[in-house]
Design a protein around this nucleic acid. Structure first.
Lengths: 196, 196
DNA sequence: TAAAAAAGTTGAACCAGTTTAACTTTTTTG
DNA sequence: CAAAAAAGTTAAACTGGTTCAACTTTTTTA
């Protein structure tokens, strides 16, 4: 009945918290399956991000556009990852990020209201979101360290090693801005590598 | 009875979650007051960070030392802030950061075991830690965006505006590495500003 | 409180990464 | 599937920020 989309999400949840069947099913029932076309936006500046999005299939990119028109990738998400503008989602304020589909995708969306309801309904649901936030916090913390301490070339090597699946799937300009360098420079780094 | 240290922490907690008197007191009773001398470490690489630390007074600096001996500030904490190596604390693995007192300080320490116990004991405690993690997540996310999108000079101006209390209280070399630049360059930026 | 250590300053030489621009390859779309 | 648009490549000129080195000021400690 639930379909493979909900099975992936179930696994994801049960890896983090133990739930009885009914508890799990109730939680799942709060998610809405949505199909997103390539290039479609699920978050846009000026509008409040109403959902937390679990990627079942496809890929997304979160980015900021600054005054001069440059865009900077802040996050990627592929299968089994979450994505949204968390500042907007948590604080119910207008987003500053774009979140765009890089491929045709299928996501499971949880609204802020449903999330709040779940958190209040059952201690275990709250635990799940607490663990998610802690992991995200630790993730961003490590990312900050890498950005601050490592030169461009190492950041690229490091990304290749940690996320080979993402590295070869997203457009190069998007990856370059994620790593804090220009497309041209990343192009050179890639060439240098394959030349070796 | 509790003293001003615990009053600051009480306010901090009650701002995030509603607790009855006994609930609050039980939570507070899990914290241990510790006095830390300037230059003393509360977290060191190789040792697991056993506590989450709430700063009542004083100031701390978290930093990484990389191969060539350079150090990079990752976080500051003054009154009413938390500090630890979260990767180490959450995952019970050896720390990679140093956390050092920049001044004689007073902190309230909560151990991982006591935190886990609190989270299990009462839904509201869990809510408190969930909110803390969400806020920290959003904070690091914004920081990542600033680092990625703004040039050195703006990052300094921005920091001055947002954290004037910290900017003039921590050593310049520590601030420079936090902002991702050398001491020498920050010195020049500061001079340029006062010259205006 | 003197002397040693740590922090901050200044300027010149340098370089990792950017910019600009012209070109090639890949992807999208009518 | 042809033409247009988007993405990626290459090379030369350039620059924001670093490095190095010598010096001054502030802080620490015996």
């Amino acid at each position: 009945m639930p379909g493979p989309e909900f099975e992936l999400l179930s696994k994801h949840i049960l890896k983090r918290v133990q739930l009885a069947d009914e508890e799990l099913n109730f939680m799942l029932s709060q998610f809405k399956l949505t199909r997103i076309k390539k290039r479609q936006f699920i978050v846009q500046p000026g509008f409040t991000a109403k959902h937390r999005n679990f990627v079942y299939s496809g890929a997304f990119r979160a980015y900021v556009v600054i005054d001069n028109g440059e865009d900077h990738t802040i996050q990627f998400a592929i299968e089994d990852w979450w994505i949204t503008d968390y500042n907007s989602y948590y604080n119910s304020e207008p987003a500053t990020l774009f979140v765009m589909a890089l491929e045709d995708s299928v996501i499971l969306q949880l609204s802020r209201e449903n999330e709040d309801m779940l958190k209040q309904a059952n201690h275990k649901y709250e635990t799940f979101f607490r663990i998610s936030a802690e992991r995200a916090q630790a993730f961003h913390f490590r990312q900050l360290i890498t950005n601050l301490t490592q030169p461009a070339e190492y950041r690229y090597e490091n990304f290749l090693e940690k996320y080979p699946l993402i590295a070869n799937r997203v457009p190069q300009y998007a990856l370059a801005s994620y790593l804090g360098m220009t497309t041209e420079y990343l192009s050179k780094l890639r060439n240098k590598r394959t030349a070796k």
